[in-house]
Design a protein around this nucleic acid. Structure first.
Length: 271
DNA sequence: ATGGCGGCTCGCAGCCGA
């Protein structure tokens, strides 16, 4: 039986219009099956759909003026999404465009694959209103998973989670102790999402590798490798079991006008 | 502890990000 290889990339681009050339180069270089974007920083009308189509990709977009915004790109030579959902449809009046999920048929796979691009709220500071919103957002995400999926489904939940899951994911855990992105309640919130039945593919494959994905623009953080691992690729157990590789594309953080996040790239060999 | 850098907007200053 031939293996069906699926490559999924997650990337917080920090403005899709500022990162268009880099994004097109990444599509050409990596030829991923799915590219999940966060922080588009523009409404749907500002999304460069024509350029993306020219590169051979469809785009499911959930934009917002000025802030947030997420998308899922998929190959034009593959089937389009069967279903797409935006935010959690849970009755909460939340104007922030932070979540999109799309389900695709995969050739040779009995089960469809659901891809989710998440931009978890930043939280600003521990105890703030935005922090409470972040904690609630994690609860809503878990409820969404419970309501729409089984642990036996093929689900990839990827994105910018704005939490470093453990101290190994932080360049200076002492300085960042109980800081925003590392606080106990944020880590518990993220853990509650994962206990739906999701595997952190990077940490699963590389128990001892930091795998930073974000570096502050300031203070020469990148050259000094003062980073955080906050961009994660979660997969349900049956999907995670087929994960052969996860990479952080550090080169994408170099050169002119980088995002402050690097893309994270996972490969799955579906039976 | 602060500010630094980058991108956004009913923009040339302030907000937000992480």
């Amino acid at each position: 039986m031939t293996k069906q290889s699926i490559k999924i990339v997650t990337w917080n681009v920090n403005s899709v219009s500022q990162r268009l050339d880099r994004m097109l180069a990444l599509l050409d270089r990596e030829a991923p099956d799915f590219l999940c974007l966060q922080e588009l920083k523009g409404d749907d009308g500002k999304f460069p759909a024509e350029a993306v189509a020219g590169a051979g990709y469809r785009a499911e977009v959930f934009g917002q003026k000025g802030y947030n915004g997420v998308a899922i790109l998929s190959r034009m030579d593959a089937s389009p999404a069967v279903t797409v959902t935006r935010n959690f449809e849970d009755g909460v009046d939340d104007p922030a465009a932070r979540f999109i999920a799309a389900t695709y048929e995969i050739p040779g796979s009995a089960k469809p694959l659901t891809v989710m691009s998440a931009y978890v709220p930043n939280g600003q500071s521990v105890g703030s209103e935005k922090y409470i919103y972040k904690l609630e957002w994690f609860q809503r995400l878990r409820k969404y998973l419970d309501a729409h999926h089984k642990t036996t489904d093929l689900v990839a939940l990827v994105g910018d989670f704005n939490v470093a899951p453990a101290d190994i994911d932080v360049y200076d855990p002492v300085a960042w102790r109980e800081h925003i992105h590392t606080s106990t309640r944020e880590r518990q919130g993220l853990h509650q999402v994962a206990t739906f039945g999701l595997v952190d593919t990077w940490r699963h494959l590389y128990p001892d590798e930091p795998g930073y994905s974000w570096w502050d623009y300031r203070q020469l953080s990148f050259p000094q490798n003062k980073g955080l691992r906050i961009d994660l690729i979660y997969a349900t157990v049956p999907l995670a079991g087929t994960c052969t590789e996860v990479r952080v594309d550090r080169n994408e953080r170099k050169g002119e006008k980088p995002s402050d996040h690097a893309p994270v790239i996972a490969t799955f060999d579906l039976a």
